[in-house]
């Protein structure tokens, strides 16, 4: 029964990883930028949700839409104002440095504003749980998994079925051709970054009700996102979902079987193995550039 419980926990965590990584994957796929401040944006989402919940008592899941809206605006301005400037003036590697710098700034700001202590969001139903056979899952975790899946589904719908989604995919495939068809590529890049930041914020909100969090966690969330993308492949919600679930299972199984100190080491081992053996990711697209 322990195994089933581990799998259930792994799936919940995996849904969260997938949601946290999907924005990173989108930016990587469309702009080619590795956004090292992605984890910091996830933490911003968590802290914003915590702040809303703490001051108004609003249910954290209901706080997700306004948090996403705020972070969308942040992401758009961040890309148009800074990332694009860095890409234009030097290189993609330099733009990665810029995001590294911004990650440090955001982490520092979060520490200053919210203190370096761990925070957690505990809505009224935090201690209710559901029992299926001998597996117990907290209600929080179920709602977290459901919210993650719903949001991933929504993003997949936006990307595949709406006009803006089509434009984003077109720009990712061929920037020049898209521009010749009348697409304002810079605006699309900004929008993509905004969408990415919004989903990072949503994952932050959900992570806040599942786990306690502190500003330095941002590095872990960036690395997680990278591992998820390497596992699942670039640029698609389904790839992120697959990578996230695999990572969640690996991570819970590792802490269960080997020890709570090792999930990250194991994750890293798998990252390196993947990059060496199958750099295209499990679903197989677009990692050819890694060597």
């Amino acid at each position: 029964m322990l195994a089933v419980q581990t799998i259930a926990d792994g799936l919940v965590l995996g849904g969260l990883y997938a949601l946290a990584a999907v924005g990173f994957s989108l930016i990587f796929g469309v702009l080619g930028v590795v956004n090292l401040s992605h984890g910091a944006i996830v933490m911003m989402g968590a802290y914003l949700t915590w702040f809303v919940w703490h001051t108004t008592g609003l249910d954290p899941l209901l706080a997700i839409p306004p948090v996403m809206l705020v972070l969308f605006a942040f992401g758009y301005v961040y890309q148009r104002g800074l990332i694009q400037l860095a890409v234009d003036r030097s290189s993609l590697l330099a733009s990665m440095l810029v995001t590294f710098g911004v990650a440090l700034m955001l982490r520092n700001l979060l520490v200053l504003v919210f203190s370096p202590d761990f925070k957690s969001i505990t809505p009224g139903y935090a201690f209710n749980y559901l029992r299926l056979g001998e597996v117990t899952i907290d209600l929080v975790r179920i709602s977290a998994l459901a919210a993650s899946l719903a949001l991933l589904g929504a993003l997949a719908w936006v990307l595949n079925r709406t006009r803006i989604g089509r434009v984003i995919r077109a720009t990712a495939q061929q920037e020049l051709a898209a521009r010749l068809c009348g697409v304002n590529a810079r605006h699309v890049y900004g929008m993509t970054f905004g969408v990415s930041a919004a989903f990072a914020g949503a994952s932050g909100a959900i992570l806040g009700i599942v786990l306690p969090f502190a500003p330095p966690d941002e590095a872990n969330w960036t690395l997680n996102a990278f591992v998820v993308v390497v596992l699942g492949g670039v640029g698609s919600p389904s790839g992120a979902l697959l990578g996230g679930l695999v990572l969640g299972l690996i991570s819970t199984a590792t802490s269960q079987l080997i020890g709570p100190a090792f999930p990250n080491a194991m994750m890293f081992l798998i990252l390196v193995l993947m990059l060496m053996v199958r750099p295209a990711g499990l679903l197989g697209n677009a990692f050819a550039a890694s060597r």
Partner: peptide, 29 residues
């Protein structure tokens, strides 16, 4: 041997991972 086969951003992020993992292991063992 494994990570120097990676280039550019992949190498950079892999090194970020090395630092993170080493620091976690130092902290928790």
């Amino acid at each position: 041997w494994p990570i120097l086969r990676l280039r550019g951003i992949y190498f950079a992020v892999a090194m970020l991972g090395v630092a993170q993992v080493l620091s976690e292991l130092t902290n928790s063992i």
